[in-house]
Design a binder for these strands. Structure first.
Lengths: 191, 191
DNA sequence: CTCCTTAACGAACGATCGTTAGGGTCTAAT
DNA sequence: ATTAGACCCTAACGATCGTTCGTTAAGGAG
């Protein structure tokens, strides 16, 4: 992957995030690189390629961030670290995160199906944190797992709409989780 | 507003939700109504009109639903009813809700600015529920209001992506809020 | 019988879309 | 000095875009 190609992918992620996939023309992308639009086809086969690549980068970033969460900590702690990881990716790579969350649906053909599987896999990793936490007894046994996961994933997936690029997200994630965990664990931290 | 015009708006909301604003052509809309595309301009001035109208319908539905929440109940109860109201609109009018939440950003000119104000106003109504609840002492005084509102609004705004049309949302909203409130109020419902 | 409304037709507009083709100009290695 | 490859150009393609236009058909009101 040459330098120029990476530049193109980055520009594509930025414009797709800003104006949407269908709202961004090949001409727009070319202008962003200071180049004639026909020239882009020395680097890509189609516009779809750029969408696929941007969203793949997003997927990779999210999974890698989640990989760094150690699996020998208490459940609540791991959930906290997982949300930290997710929000950090959103803040540090807002463009690809936005493409991953919002623009993926313009993928066509088998790439679209591949993405849905990819996405399900990512969400399943979050779900597993809650499930394991409950099975081990670290979370209360009557936990409404479905609702809890949905709540965390909603916060995670909606974040791209309001998180400013480069924001400090660790503290924010902690505040989300402390709100949630006090409910999840069935008692509160005394005020 | 004649019947035909309303049909057109409804079809637009459906297609905009399904394929996105820029992913939906006037030709697509015409085909959905079984009509030549030029014929649509007897009803509208521009494609933007349809987007504006669909999103306005969404705004109206959400506000009206919130209006029905009585203001003489405890804070946690009002939050519960507000989320119920929101999710009900999403499930019952999935298309306009989707346009309201996701496609509004393709509005152009002053309509875009008007929408942002409209949206802020809606979110402020949710924020007020938490603020008043805290000031009155119904919610704990050290409540992380910002995070709590963000969490509820995230769940609300993300719902269009996974809520099936016509789902029973009251119970779901209750489960969300019971998770949240146990944290918010600083004690748990005994298991 | 006429007038007006409502709705749609079909053809065309200029602009822009994504994409292709062929040729040109640098740089760095041989 | 020659070659290879990366990079870009100009020009054009067929298709589709949103929009405009003049016309037509049906039906109720006077």
């Amino acid at each position: 992957m040459t330098t120029r190609r990476a530049e193109l992918t980055r520009a594509a992620a930025r414009l797709f995030a800003e104006r949407g996939y269908h709202g961004t023309s090949i001409g727009d992308l070319a202008r962003a690189l200071g180049v004639q639009k026909g020239s882009l086809y020395a680097h890509i086969d189609s516009k779809q390629d750029l969408l696929f690549e941007a969203m793949s980068e997003g997927a990779r970033a999210f999974h890698e961030a989640l990989d760094a969460v150690p699996d020998d900590r208490p459940a609540a702690e791991r959930i906290r670290l997982a949300l930290r990881a997710h929000l950090r990716v959103v803040a540090e790579q807002l463009d690809v995160a936005t493409v991953f969350v919002r623009e993926w649906r313009y993928l066509e053909g088998e790439r679209a199906e591949a993405f849905v599987a990819e996405r399900r896999r990512y969400e399943e990793r979050f779900r597993a944190l809650f499930r394991e936490g409950r099975e081990v007894g670290a979370l209360r046994t009557d936990l409404d797992e479905h609702a809890a996961v949905l709540l965390v994933l909603s916060a995670a997936n909606w974040a791209y709409t309001w998180l400013p690029e480069g924001a400090d997200t660790d503290e924010l994630a902690d505040r989300f989780v402390s709100l949630l965990v006090d409910g999840v664990r069935g008692y509160s931290t005394p005020t």
